[in-house]
Design a protein around this nucleic acid. Structure first.
Length: 771
RNA sequence: GGGCGGUUAGCUCAGUUGGUUAGAGCGUUUCGUCGACAUCGAAAAGGUCACAGGUUCGAGUCCUGUACCGCCCACCA
């Protein structure tokens, strides 16, 4: 009989769901997991398979170790990422549509995609409590998120301000520092001539962004630069646009770079902002929210920044101002969601004030138990480098509305009552007049950053904090991990969770990142079909904490082979357990080889748990693999074959062997269950269910190690060693393993003597001599 | 430029607090099947542990430095 994994895996998946095997029981020892609500996308990708397998192995292990495991499931279908998916799926752009239409489309699309999306998680055997699946855009979570936002206002942590903001012209919204990504870009250094007002003398300035000339508000040189020292205090005239700007000194100017003279525009980069603030420079913005030049750019108005760059270069060239060009490659900040180059504009946004809390955040980071420890440095590094308060307002249609109005008369911010949440201020009005007596209100149209909601996952799940474990990948340390830490500290002065487990990425077979443009993306659904979920989980479980994992069809094949081996070994065991009823009384008849395998199992359990407790599931897997394959299959099963086949064997001996088989096999299945939940359930249900009280193997407890047979174990190890010697002898003489041998000499201790008859029978050797 | 990882058999990786001939899986080679399994079993070959110094009776394991690979952050005139 062959194991039909496709059919059986689906069967058990349905069984678990119907029987609510993983529903959370809120009592006793609780182990709570702050699971990552996957961002709604068309399909589950292989990275999800890997990271969810990891946390699921932990969840299943903890459950079998006696914990009540809180493992909620949610989908993040809120805000920008989902809106972008909706735009892609329906081939629309939000700004071409009416807000209401777009929102309707969002809801429709989510409804369409969600069920299949969630089913992928069930298909790979994730043991979340699906009886309570949440969606981050649901009204309940909108309410929670808005309520927490109002609390930020109460605590004077949320504030609104017009200030330089990171702006994505592709998504047409402000974004946060964490959403920046590097992108290597080729560009040209342009060497321009500016004239001094005083004597029309020429100075040379190098810039990569001539389109920002209209925004030039000052020129800087390094005070230590002997070449340019005399320029300090002079006034220069900006070419083409004619504005007069002061030449100032600042040590941030690199003498070696360009010509050592730099123009400061509002705003080209963060240094410009610093200078703008420090030297109280005028604000002069020439780029609008669509990344097109505005009135300030005069005849260049309406051009995109890219067009303007070329057109202005041309104009400069014609006038002889552009003296030289030099191609360079440098890093640009782009939006991680769309790759659009980021501009810095002055806009009015809502921020969460937290720059003053860096020290506290670092202290919180130090209180986590980090797995692996070195990942702490990543978070700390990020916290130390934060330059901006958290911009949480987004100029988008789809998301959780920022629940405020502004009084038309006095501009006062009007907040809703908590009991009325969730609200959309564009749909409802405040219930009271403004304190100034005004009764006209302007609704806030912005929505919240998705992370403003995702940073509340413990509260969303209604978990008690600190939770036990946060599992997540390293790419969102600056986002999810950091924001959750920050929110938890600001609201509760508490850690959100105790342990942090960081997992890695899935790379392709060559070790390169997967990306659509490279065409090396592996889709999990085909793999599940061909190899089964257990096999894929087996592959995924080889990556340890903090490690990237390579996609490896070979490793999946090994996983499938392991499933088959478990199946076959079980068939053998069950064949000989047909007429057997478990009876503990058999224990007193067990023989030394039984005691040996029991002790070997105990060692394996001990090591396995030690690794699992440290989240080193990949090591735990190796331990059970080696016990099952080498000790149990290759040795023990071979050793006891005569006891289960020989008609003349004593009943006691047979039953003792059956007793051992029953217990060892069940233990093996339990130890494999967190990694391969399907095959283990299959065998449990096909036999053990008759005698065990739990309705699923996943509700049973792991066996306890027991070393009362240590002496017999050590003696019997001699037999195992002797078998190896005889196997080697036969192999070297090209004999089959059951070929008869007259006489053989082995190296061993006299203690082996009592086992010689057994050994001779096992290995078909008539006479064994010891040296 | 700042920070963090990594460099051990052809490949993917283990090597705990420094201690006898450095391990596993895959691959390779040789051999073995009608009593669970050829998706199997047995055996063999294969490594100057990136490099250079140092500590030590003794270092893959500790210290210093170098090189290369990867990642995060910053810069990005």
């Amino acid at each position: 009989m062959k194991y039909n994994f496709t059919k059986q895996e689906l069967k058990w998946q349905k069984f678990w769901e119907k029987e609510k095997i993983y529903a959370f029981q809120n009592n006793g020892k609780v182990f709570s997991i702050d699971a990552d609500p996957p961002t709604l996308s068309g399909q589950m990708h292989i990275g999800h398979v890997s990271s969810y397998t990891h946390e699921d192995i932990v969840a299943r292990y903890k459950r079998m170790a006696g914990f009540n495991v809180f493992f909620p499931f949610g989908v993040d279908d809120n805000g920008l990422p989902t809106a972008k998916l909706v735009e892609k799926e329906n081939k629309v752009r939000f700004f071409d549509m009416q807000k209401n239409e777009f929102l309707k489309l969002c809801n429709q699309t989510i409804k369409k995609l969600l069920p299949e999306f969630i089913s992928s998680w069930k298909r790979i055997g994730v043991s979340c409590d699906f009886t309570n699946t949440y969606s981050t855009i649901s009204p309940e979570i909108q309410k929670l998120s808005q309520e927490m936002f109002l609390k930020l206002i109460e605590k004077k942590r949320a504030y609104q301000k017009e200030s330089p903001t990171l702006w994505c012209s592709g998504c047409k919204t402000a974004i946060a520092q964490a959403e920046l990504e590097d992108k290597e870009t080729k560009t040209e250094f342009c060497f321009l001539e500016f004239k001094l007002k005083k004597d029309k003398k020429v100075i040379n300035i190098a810039t990569t962004r001539p389109e920002l000339l209209p925004s030039c508000v000052a020129i800087f040189v390094n005070p230590k630069d002997k070449r340019h020292k005399k320029l300090i205090g002079e006034t220069a005239i900006v070419p083409l646009f004619g504005q007069e700007v002061k030449i100032l000194a600042d040590k941030k100017v690199e003498i070696e770079k360009g010509t050592g003279i730099v123009m400061c525009c509002t705003f080209g980069d963060t240094t410009d902002i610093e200078w703008f603030l420090e030297y109280k420079l005028p604000l002069s913005i020439c780029i609008d929210k669509n990344a097109r030049l505005n009135d300030l750019a005069k005849e260049f108005k309406g051009l995109t920044t890219k067009q303007a760059r070329e057109t202005i270069k041309q104009a400069l060239e014609e006038k002889g101002i552009l003296k030289d060009r030099k191609e360079i490659t440098h890093m640009l900040n782009v939006h991680e969601r769309c790759g659009t180059e980021i501009e810095i504009l002055s806009t009015k946004q809502w921020f969460v004030k937290y720059l003053d809390l860096k020290k506290e955040f670092l202290a919180q980071s130090g209180k986590f138990n980090w797995y692996p420890p070195f990942m702490k440095a990543r978070l700390d590094n990020w916290i130390k480098g934060i330059k901006w308060d958290w911009c949480i307002s987004r100029q988008r249609y789809f998301g959780i509305p920022i629940p405020v109005w502004y009084c038309k008369d006095c501009g006062e911010i009007i907040l809703p009552d908590k009991k009325d949440l969730p609200i959309d201020p564009t749909h409802t009005k405040p219930k009271k007049k403004c304190s100034c007596g005004g009764n006209d209100f302007i609704p806030e149209t912005d929505v919240l950053d998705t992370w403003a909601t995702s940073s509340l996952t413990p509260q969303i799940a209604k978990a008690k904090i600190p939770m036990s474990l946060r599992p997540q990948a390293h790419d969102i340390i600056n986002f999810w991990l950091f924001y959750t830490l920050a929110r938890s500290y600001i609201h509760f002065k508490k850690l959100p969770f105790k342990d942090v487990f960081i997992s890695g990425f899935v790379l392709d077979e060559k070790g390169e990142k997967m990306s659509k443009s490279k065409g090396n993306v592996i889709k999990p659904e085909n793999l599940i079909e061909n190899y089964g979920a257990d096999a894929i989980r087996y592959w995924a479980s080889q990556a340890g904490m903090g490690e990237d994992i390579r996609y490896s069809e070979e490793e999946i094949r090994i996983g499938k082979r392991t499933v088959t081996k478990i199946w076959n070994a079980s068939q053998f065991c069950l064949m000989h357990l047909k007429a057997y009823k478990p009876n503990k009384a058999e224990l007193k008849f067990i023989q030394d080889e039984d005691k040996w395998i029991f002790t070997k199992l105990s060692e394996a359990i001990e090591n396995y748990c030690e690794k699992m407790d440290k989240y080193e599931y990949q090591r735990a897997k190796e331990i059970i693999d080696s016990f099952f394959w080498n000790d149990f299959c290759d040795n023990y099963l071979e050793i006891i074959k005569h006891r289960v086949y020989d008609e003349e064997i004593e009943k006691k001996s047979l039953r003792a062997a059956q007793f051992t088989l029953y217990n060892i096999l069940l233990s093996v299945l339990k130890l494999y269950a967190p990694i391969m939940p399907f095959i283990t359930e299959e065998i449990y249900q096909s036999y053990f269910i008759k005698f065990e009280k739990e309705k699923s193997i996943h509700l049973t407890f792991l066996p306890k190690p027991d070393k009362k047979f240590l002496t017999e174990f050590k003696d019997f190890e001699l037999v195992i060693e002797a078998i190896a010697q005889i196997r080697k002898y036969k192999s070297e003489h090209h004999l089959s393993m059951n070929a008869e041998v007259e006489s053989i000499k082995i190296k061993s201790s006299p203690k082996i003597k009592k086992y010689l008859p057994l050994l001779g029978k096992l290995m078909s050797v008539k006479q064994i001599k010891i040296s």
